[in-house]
Simulated scan of single mutants.
Amino acid sequence: MAVLVTRPDERGAQLVEMLNKSGIAAIHLPLFSISAGRELNELPNKINQLNAGDIIFVVSKNAVKFAAETLKSIGFHWRNDVQYIAVGQSTACCLSSLSEQTVIYPFAQENSEGVLNLPQMQQLHEKTVLILRGNGGRELLAEQAKARGAKVDVLECYQRIPVAYDDNIAQVDLCKRSGVESLIVTSLAILQALIEFVPPEEQNWLKACRLVTVSRRIANFAIKCGWKSENILISARADNASLVETLVTTRTSLD
């Protein structure tokens, strides 16, 4: 069994290395690269404008990384009188480490729906929610926070930039010759890009591959696109260690 890893940049490369060390052959084919967001220079002012008790919500470790680097470069310290919320444990730990602040996350359901179920997100009248994220992305949390009375401010901390390959057919042929039978896809945008990347004549191969993903939402979209539900695995969390554990456990059960 070989695994195609589509997670971008360093985290994708680290995942490949972790899988190889676990005895699972892996190939890295990132479909996006990650770069600094176009609104990062506005971040210090946005944080200064918050009132005590307002909320800073961070969607990913990429948002944490670029935000923290920006603030550190000007000697700006994260405020200790606002609330910090992250979408999952990995992002929360990263933000807590770099900001030296307590960060809340939805332990049982690490997604936007889980965040919206947190007690801190129920009464938002006269509060501001500052969302740190990449370009594009899901609008559910922003929409629901507004519906609950919050003023919502969205700031682009990073950009997803499509990676251009000289020959898509050659890349797909390499995957097939390498025995790729499983795909790791960690976002809806990546899944959409992967479907567009693979030529029409290879779509049957693509959708016969087992899909390892990180949310029911992505799984449901994959089913609509042609994957069989029994051929989709949902990792308990989106971090690399959890993805490796999902694959190792499945391999062991199949053996």
Rank of each mutant, 00 (worst) to 15 (best):
residue 69 E to C: 03
residue 80 N to H: 12
residue 95 L to T: 00
residue 62 N to F: 09
residue 157 C to W: 09
residue 64 V to Q: 05
residue 124 L to Y: 10
residue 58 V to L: 06
residue 85 I to F: 00
residue 132 L to I: 15
residue 164 A to K: 14
residue 196 E to F: 01
residue 96 S to A: 15
residue 89 Q to F: 03
residue 173 D to P: 01
residue 147 A to H: 07
residue 187 S to M: 09
residue 87 V to H: 00
residue 57 F to N: 01
residue 113 E to T: 00
residue 158 Y to K: 06
residue 61 K to I: 13
residue 131 I to V: 14
residue 121 M to Y: 05
residue 169 I to M: 14
residue 177 R to Q: 15
residue 179 G to W: 08
residue 77 H to R: 15
residue 79 R to T: 04
residue 69 E to W: 02
residue 186 T to W: 08
residue 167 D to E: 14
residue 191 L to P: 11
residue 114 G to N: 02
residue 190 I to K: 03
residue 81 D to A: 14
residue 99 S to E: 06
residue 132 L to Q: 12
residue 181 E to Y: 09
residue 197 F to S: 09
residue 163 V to Y: 03
residue 133 R to D: 05
residue 109 Q to P: 00
residue 164 A to R: 10
residue 107 F to A: 04
residue 124 L to F: 13
residue 164 A to C: 09
residue 130 L to A: 10
residue 83 Q to F: 06
residue 120 Q to D: 13
residue 94 C to D: 13
residue 108 A to F: 00
residue 198 V to Q: 06
residue 75 G to P: 06
residue 138 R to N: 09
residue 121 M to W: 12
residue 107 F to V: 01
residue 169 I to S: 14
residue 97 S to E: 15
residue 139 E to T: 13
residue 68 A to F: 13
residue 74 I to H: 04
residue 77 H to E: 11
residue 103 V to H: 03
residue 172 V to F: 13
residue 138 R to E: 02
residue 107 F to H: 01
residue 173 D to C: 07
residue 156 E to T: 13
residue 174 L to N: 15
residue 66 F to D: 05
residue 145 A to P: 11
residue 154 V to F: 08
